[in-house]
Simulated assay, not measured.
Amino acid sequence: MSVQVQKSFEEDKSGGSAYGKLYLVATPIGNLEDMTYRAVRTLQEADIIAAEDTRNTRKLLTHFEITPGKLLSYHEHNKAASGPELIRLIIEGKNLALVSDAGLPAISDPGSDLVKLAIEAGISVIPVPGANAALSALIVSGLSTSRFQFIGFMPRDNKERGTLLQSLQDEESTLLMYESPHRLIKTLDSILEVLGDREVVLARELTKRYEEMTRGTLSECLLWLEDHPPLGEYCIVVAGARPEEVKERRDAWWQSMTIEEHVNYYEQQEGSDRKEAMKKAAGDRGVSKRDIYQALL
């Protein structure tokens, strides 16, 4: 294994043809005043700007009176072909600035694949930091900021979403997630079902005119949403598991049992019917009865 050391701002003194650099440039998540002086300068000086949506980026450049270098498209659907081509241009000496539609590139974003290609090619990757929706929601949430875990977008598939949430049951750090308005309620229902009625903050339209933070328990926020339908993109901030809950679950009498043995226990020892036994086992394990049923098929 060889160690690779990047000296981001050290000039090439080899006399050979120096590679260009890959700049990861943060863009506003809503309020255009979040753009930093450094981000504007980097985009002004870049030979190439790679963007998730060139139409959105062109509007941003126009607003800041930036005359772009070559503006190229790089997104999830063309990254396999576009990525190596962008790397070739950097190797030829071009400085490339990568932007996403909003916030930091390479977070829940195909930019992470371009970063890997650049590192493999020995190209310097330089962050130009700025606004980030998840961290902005976290710091105003009122929940613990000492430890947190970024989940990104939750899986659309019910089973996959349930499996992911079950793996987070004993996670004591604050959880950060992104969600669209039309899937918000379904996602909150899943979190409530698997993780229990925890404290949650729903942050929407961050830095924009209609910025709003809704704070309460999951059940309270779901009730509130019945009269206030979701609008805009959301960042969900969920309190982590309490240490005493985690200890109680780990010390539970049924821990060594399979799901089948757990359900059989309630049937044989307490005389519960199959349906009631599955419900009790699901309650013990903090999962839905449907998950128990699926596991027993």
Score class of each variant (00 low, 15 high):
Ser73Pro: 04
Gly93Glu: 12
Ala102Val: 00
Tyr265Ala: 06
Leu104His: 01
Arg285Trp: 13
Ile87Gln: 06
Trp253Gly: 03
Ser82Ile: 00
Leu202Pro: 09
Glu179Gly: 01
Leu72Ala: 00
Thr62Met: 12
Thr217Gln: 08
Asp109Glu: 08
Asp291Ala: 15
Thr67Gly: 08
Glu193Asp: 12
Trp224Leu: 07
Gly162Phe: 07
Glu199Ala: 10
Leu176Asp: 09
Ile48Asp: 06
Arg147Gly: 07
Leu86Ala: 10
Leu89Asn: 06
Val3Met: 14
Glu52Met: 02
Leu138Phe: 06
Ser17Gln: 11
Lys275Gln: 14
Lys159Asp: 05
Leu206Cys: 06
Ile66His: 02
Asn56Leu: 14
Gln268Tyr: 05
Pro68His: 13
Gln255Tyr: 10
Ile87Tyr: 12
Pro110Val: 08
Gln268Gly: 01
Ser136Tyr: 02
Ile151Asn: 07
Gly103Ala: 07
Tyr19Met: 13
Gly83Asn: 08
Val287Met: 13
Ser124Val: 06
Lys275Ala: 14
Ile49Lys: 01
Thr27Phe: 04
Thr36Asp: 01
Met154Gln: 09
Arg58Gly: 10
Thr145Gln: 09
Thr57Ala: 11
Ala239Val: 01
Lys79Phe: 03
Gly196His: 03
Asp12Cys: 04
Asp273Trp: 10
Val201Ala: 05
Val25Trp: 10
Thr145Val: 13
Arg249Ile: 08
Ser272Ala: 10
Ile107Asn: 04
Ser124Ala: 14
Gln4Asn: 14
Leu195Phe: 01
Tyr23Ser: 12
Gly93Val: 01
Gly283Ser: 11
Gly69Trp: 02
Ala252Ile: 05
Ala241His: 11
Met177His: 02
Ile126Asp: 06
Leu32Val: 15
Val238Met: 05
Ile49Met: 03
Ser167Gly: 14
Leu71Phe: 00
Glu244Phe: 06
Ser82Pro: 00
Leu218Pro: 03
Ser17Tyr: 08
Asp53Val: 03
Gly232Glu: 11
Gly216Trp: 05
Lys94Leu: 12
Leu22Asp: 07
Pro229Asn: 07
Val246Ile: 06
Lys13Ile: 14
Lys13Pro: 00
Thr54Val: 02
Val115His: 01
Glu248Ala: 15
Ser144Arg: 09
Asp284Tyr: 10
Leu195Ala: 02
Gly283Phe: 00
Arg156Met: 01
Val140Ala: 14
Cys235Arg: 00
Ala102Tyr: 04
Ala18His: 13
Gly130Asp: 01
Gln166Arg: 15
Leu104Phe: 08
Glu248Asn: 11
Ser180His: 10
Ala131Asp: 03
Leu223Gln: 15
Ser167Asn: 12
Ser146Lys: 14
Pro28Trp: 08
Leu164Phe: 08
Leu43Ala: 06
Gly122Thr: 07
Thr36Leu: 05
Leu222Thr: 02
His262Lys: 07
Gly286Glu: 08
Gly196Ser: 04
Val201Lys: 00
Lys7Gln: 15
Gly196Arg: 04
Met257Pro: 00
Ile119Glu: 07
Leu231Asp: 10
Leu22Ile: 06
Pro105Asp: 13
Ala51Gln: 09
Arg198Val: 07
Lys13Arg: 14
Asn264Val: 01
Val125Gly: 05
Phe9Glu: 04
Arg156Tyr: 08
Asn95Pro: 02
Glu244His: 12
Asp34Phe: 09
Lys247Thr: 11
